[in-house]
Amino acid sequence: MVKEEVQQLINNLIEIEHVSTTLYLAMSAYLDRKNYTGMAKWLRLQSEEERTHMLTLIDYLAGKDGVVKLSQVPAQPTDFGTPLETFQKVLEHEQYVTNAYRQAYDYIQQVDPQTAVIIQDFLREQIDEEAQASTIVERLKMAGDNPSALLLLDQELGQRNGATPAG
């Protein structure tokens, strides 16, 4: 059976991914309501990706005879501001997630090298997660209040296909 501190660490990461899933789903619903359907689709797929991360961690912990503890997820806001403000929140959240995985990796590599490999895969993926969010934020800044530019960016983001698995 997996050590208690490893279970706690993985359960904390499961909770972070669970919150990420619901946060991005709430953002998707918000932007869909504002008729930014491409951005809404992008965030819906991001929500699915975070759910996949959560399930991967659950399966890993359960596969090691660990105890999975799913805690209650806080209610998410229903208003996220402009598309720029929404994606700035996405970037801030991805930076928070990266920091959580970095701290987990720093700790776990000394305690459980096998689990460290799993955590490292997620940490590696966070490089791309932050880069995507940062690019979208910068492009939204360039678009400013120009409706044509916003709609073009919305259309581009709507062309995203499927969530990609971790690792």
Results as ranks from 00 to 15, higher is better:
117 V>E: 05
84 L>Y: 13
50 E>D: 10
127 I>W: 05
88 Q>R: 15
78 T>E: 10
59 D>A: 13
63 G>T: 02
159 Q>H: 09
112 D>P: 00
127 I>F: 11
120 Q>W: 05
57 L>N: 04
49 E>I: 05
167 G>V: 04
60 Y>G: 00
129 E>M: 09
159 Q>P: 01
55 L>Q: 15
92 E>V: 09
10 I>H: 05
106 D>W: 00
106 D>G: 05
39 M>I: 09
86 T>N: 13
70 L>C: 04
136 I>H: 08
89 K>T: 12
92 E>R: 09
136 I>D: 02
42 W>K: 11
145 D>F: 06
79 D>V: 15
13 L>D: 04
35 N>Q: 15
35 N>D: 14
119 I>Y: 01
52 T>A: 15
166 A>C: 13
25 L>Y: 05
59 D>S: 15
29 A>T: 12
98 T>E: 11
83 P>M: 03
50 E>W: 09
6 V>S: 08
68 V>D: 05
96 Y>A: 05
87 F>R: 07
89 K>S: 15
49 E>D: 07
53 H>K: 10
149 A>F: 12
63 G>S: 02
108 I>F: 00
122 F>D: 01
146 N>L: 03
11 N>C: 03
19 V>L: 11
53 H>I: 06
92 E>K: 13
3 K>P: 08
4 E>H: 13
64 K>Q: 14
8 Q>W: 01
46 Q>Y: 04
118 I>N: 08
49 E>N: 07
21 T>F: 15
87 F>S: 09
102 R>G: 14
65 D>G: 07
31 L>F: 13
31 L>I: 11
11 N>F: 03
76 Q>A: 13
152 L>P: 00
66 G>I: 06
142 M>I: 14
102 R>W: 04
118 I>L: 15
140 L>Q: 03
147 P>S: 04
53 H>D: 10
9 L>Y: 00
123 L>D: 02
16 I>E: 14
164 T>A: 14
162 G>L: 09
101 Y>G: 09
135 T>W: 05
41 K>A: 09
108 I>M: 00
119 I>L: 14
119 I>V: 15
37 T>G: 05
6 V>R: 02
104 A>S: 14
126 Q>N: 12
27 M>F: 06
97 V>E: 13
119 I>P: 11
